[in-house]
């Protein structure tokens, strides 16, 4: 996917963040001095464990308490995170963001379709309409022909890969502008990982009619330890983190997996 000529989804300026609280002194920064732009399309966030990629995702997704950090994040050129009130952050997460994490975190007391429908319920869509939309989503996403059968099942009754795909559906059911996928493939076998990526691509390309504008500019931020898959899926647009600092931004696509591994510090140049 090529980068658009329009403005970035996120603009990061000298972003620094250290974990801590009001009462605890902040530890060493997990992210330091990151300045970059992230445009619609896929951006792979790569790095070794502890390099700050998940922290970066949390900051961009408004999941972390960002009050202690200096630096600036701007969403779509208008929403300055530093100026966002708590309620506005909640609204942004609810309306514009979707999250897929390493674990699916499905609600055990809801069936699969009800789990998928949670974001719709949060924006006040009534049950019948929720059901209709989720049924359509399952049908459109059912590339393997097995997904629809899961609708009425409880999460405990399906496999980990299936749970993860249901989690993806939950993340995209309201057609967010940005999907944050933090190591969604790590617990999946190759076949399920492939299915997952197909699903993400399908959504990114607007292959699911989710009642949004057809020309919607979607952004996928993918964190993965599977460097070759991530580089290939992002077509080289990678944000590579090393010890909290960004060593390569998406504006300088990596030509191959080896370059990415060098940037990450896995292999010597």
């Amino acid at each position: 996917m090529s980068a658009t000529t329009e403005g970035p989804t996120f603009a990061l300026s000298n972003l620094t963040y250290a974990y801590g609280s009001r009462w605890k002194r902040p530890s060493l920064p997990a992210v330091t001095g990151v300045t970059s732009e992230i445009h619609p399309g896929v951006t792979a966030v790569l790095g070794l464990s502890g390099s700050g990629k998940t922290t970066l995702l949390n900051l961009l997704g408004l999941l972390a308490d960002a009050r202690l950090q200096p630096g600036q994040i701007t969403f779509r050129g208008t929403a300055d995170y530093a100026a966002l009130r708590s309620s506005a952050q909640v609204k942004l997460r609810r309306d514009a963001f979707g999250f897929v994490l390493q674990s699916s975190f499905l609600l055990p007391h809801f069936s699969c379709w009800e789990n998928v429908a949670v974001p719709l319920a949060l924006v006040g869509i009534h049950r019948a309409e929720r059901r209709k939309r989720v049924e359509r989503l399952f049908a459109q996403a059912d590339l393997s022909g097995r997904l629809t059968a899961l609708m009425e099942k409880r999460p405990r009754d399906i496999s980990g890969g299936e749970r993860q795909r249901v989690a993806v559906l939950r993340a995209i059911v309201h057609d967010p502008l940005v999907l944050f996928a933090d190591e969604p493939l790590s617990s999946l076998d190759p076949l399920n990982a492939k299915e997952m990526l197909k699903l993400l691509r399908h959504w990114l390309n607007g292959g699911m009619s989710l009642a949004s504008a057809p020309d919607r500019r979607r952004t996928l931020l993918l964190v993965s330890h599977d460097v070759s898959t991530a580089v290939r899926f992002a077509e080289g647009r990678c944000l590579i983190m090393r010890a909290g600092a960004m060593v390569r931004g998406p504006d300088r696509p990596v030509p191959d997996e080896r370059t990415a591994l060098v940037d990450m510090g896995v292999i010597e140049e």
Binding site: L63, F97, F105, P119
Partner: peptide, 13 residues
Amino acid sequence: IAEIGMLKAMGMG
């Protein structure tokens, strides 16, 4: 706690 965190991430107030 994780479910609650996820619900908050999804914008549940």
